[in-house]
Amino acid sequence: MPLNWKAGGLLLGLVFFAAVLLVKPIGVSTQFVILDGIVGDAVNPALVTTTDDGYTSTNAYLAKSGGKYAKAVSNPLNYSFVFVLAMMLGGFLSALTRGGIDRAERSVPALWRANFGDAPWKRYAAAFAGGFVVLYGARLAGGCTSGHMMSGMMQTALSGYIFAAGAFLAAIPVSMMLFRKEA
């Protein structure tokens, strides 16, 4: 059972506030691009190169906005990338200290099992496909649930409202169609 919504919402709000007070608004999805860039650059060192005044890339997306992403690929120990690694540490410790997640749930979540059975490969395939669409969409939108919806709406950004409208407009009917039974 998760934390009561009043305590949970207060804590989550404090984290988003602390981020913008001390550094900058929280965002996650860009780091998938940065990790792709790091891997890509390891395979093909010509992907990201230095210029007189910074970094650029043969990939137009990494090169955009003055090579901002290319720079992060070249310097993975930057705030945003370490932030995501630290999220994993926090999630790991939090799950551990509440007793962990049981074995069956770890591969096939209960809601999925109630609707589609307990074959892990089916669930893994759906999670993989979902991940593809989520990150493709997040990059097209320029942010995800953290950066656009939470950080954006918190700052009264117009883009945050547009994003949230799109996300829930698709997510609610898709979920209702897929998960007709609840565990």
Binding site: G100, G131, G137, A165
Partner: peptide, 28 residues
């Protein structure tokens, strides 16, 4: 932003994860 939001929403519903929560879920 709207189109990407629609895509993200659909994938979020299927997988049950968004970029940040997926990373945390894997770590947990």
């Amino acid at each position: 932003v709207f189109l990407g939001g629609l895509l993200l929403g659909a994938g979020w519903a299927v997988a049950g994860y968004c970029p940040g929560t997926g990373v945390v879920a894997a770590a947990s």
